[in-house]
Design a protein around this nucleic acid. Structure first.
Lengths: 317, 317
DNA sequence: GTGAAAGCGCTAACAC
DNA sequence: GTGTTAGCGCTTTCAC
């Protein structure tokens, strides 16, 4: 087996507790002793056994994150933030993809719980009650979801949606249609609120490319001059359908997305959309989790979103 | 604290060792006893403490995976496969994104090593020597990379590239240019081999959208009628540049990608590309890792790839 | 087939 | 400031 704390203690001529303290409570040992211990640690390449440490402290040094769909680039972006911040703290990250299924989500959180100190739950599809219950099983932080009594970080999509509509208004549009995501999705309701009744609602479609195609098909029949999609994936689907049926974007119809995923800038016409503070959101979530683990109360943070006007929107025809 | 093995033992009227055996070596206890124990386990909701178990067995029940870029949809697709197969075995997955940096990659593997039973390394950018050395630190399985003595699963991109060229030939093209990925990338060399000298080489570009834009700019000067990109992200960049400068695809220039990421089918014109067995690759990697942990030798598997002809290729102009 | 007991490597009282 | 010691929850000899 590898080198243990006892090996270090022997070679540094101190007791095991001193080694332990030198490593995890540096203030409690004399500077000179600490130095000597650390030298030996370095020399031997000693790495504390995490299992042994966990067994006593009850902490694992791990954290979990559950996302609905890894293939929606929005979530990898959030993951980056989580990984970055967690890495700084020496924490490892378990990830899971729930495939947009609330039951799977709950199961994954429960499975992870014993081997992590807490879980970050991204755009959860569960009910408030289910989430509240899980928050009792393990420390929990939500991203883009609010449940009373549970820590959360919200990217302000209501404001983002407001910016979208204002942008379209400034271009002279008067008749918009909202290509809605699944009715049961919390973010969808939030975005609908941001519309404040200023758009005709169409819904509920799958929040992906195929859903966007279907939605655009229906939206064309409304005679609206602007399509506001629930997210970028749907907007891309809409763009594809409009191209297929020969409707000019933005000459005949303007299209907007939401999230500003990598591909929003890559498609043609480039998509007007709302930038989400994804990486920042991931980092803040980790911070909130840390605060929770330190015994703090549940907290809520809100992060701003920004409209990015690109080529898919233009003057009303 | 939670319910321990002792609680189960007491209530089932057996010793802790019997409980332990009933759970991890069912063959060693009488059927009746085993039943009784399992009933109590169920009733109490007992879950063995993984830290305690690890401390003795030396196994963590975890596995790690390192990918170069989570935002390239190719990798989330592989992750899905890994997660699926690992989940079936009750194994949790740590993920890490190396941001296309070989040093980070090595560091991540070393960091993970103590808390996982093995690591899956995706499209590694490290040298053969570095990889071989890491394989000594922890059980290792490579995806899309071959290093002697190290287990690996390869998606056969040489054959894929061959299919691409054959397809272009059948459309009457005679002058192709290859928009190459980074020269140091193993997969890039592999794909170049698949070209077998039948295309003019241009390189080395960043394997992303921006790289594709730059590459297309240069490729236009060659007068070639078909652009073969290292991967889909580059192909999308090329498509974007061609649209920007008013070059018709596929009327004037045909474009092909590689990987068949989600967006390959979504862009317009839809991209002709090569489908990679991503999810399957992830699953096989987990299997190889399991075999390794069971004391088996390093193994190598090869998975087939298939050309998907879409709208971005057509008859030579 | 089952039980008793010895640790796995570490931290946290508790003494000094 | 530092050392001694008692476990954390589990698996695994070794007896019976």
């Amino acid at each position: 087996m590898a080198v243990t704390i006892r090996d270090v203690a022997r070679q540094a001529q101190v007791s095991v507790s001193t080694v332990s303290r030198a490593l995890s409570a540096p203030g409690l040992v004399k500077e000179a002793t600490r130095r000597r211990v650390l030298d030996v640690v370095q020399g031997l390449g000693y790495q504390p056994n995490r299992a042994a440490r966990s067994l006593i402290t009850g902490r694992t040094g791990n954290l979990g994150i559950v996302v609905p769909d890894l293939e929606n680039p929005f979530f990898p972006a959030v993951l980056r933030g989580v990984q970055t911040r967690a890495g700084e703290a020496g924490t490892s990250v378990f990830f899971c993809d729930s495939r947009e299924d609330p039951l799977t989500e709950a199961e994954l959180v429960r499975t992870m719980a014993p081997q992590v100190d807490g879980v970050v739950l991204c755009a959860s599809l569960m009910s408030d009650e289910q989430i509240a219950e899980l928050a009792g099983v393990t420390p929990l932080v939500l991203i883009n979801r609010i449940v009373p009594g549970v820590s959360s970080v919200l990217m302000d999509s209501a404001s983002g949606m407001d910016q979208v509509v204002t942008h379209l208004e400034s271009l002279g549009h008067q008749h918009y249609v909202y290509l809605g995501g699944p009715a049961a999705v919390w973010s969808n309701n939030r975005r609908t609120q941001g519309l404040a009744g200023r758009a005709q609602l169409l819904g509920s479609f799958e929040p992906n490319f195929a859903g966007g195609v279907t939605a655009a098909e229906q939206a064309l029949r409304t005679g609206a001059t602007a399509f506001i999609a629930y997210n970028d994936l749907m907007a891309l689907g809409a763009l594809s359908h409009l191209a297929a049926v020969g409707v000019g974007v933005p000459q005949q119809v303007s299209v907007t997305g939401f999230d500003d995923i990598l591909y929003a800038a890559m498609c043609s016409p480039a998509l007007t959309t709302v930038t989400m503070p994804t990486e920042e959101g991931g980092k803040v979530a980790v911070d909130l989790l840390a605060a929770l683990l330190d015994g703090g109360p549940a907290e809520h943070r809100e992060l701003p979103t920004t409209l990015v006007a690109r080529a898919s929107t233009g003057e009303a025809g």
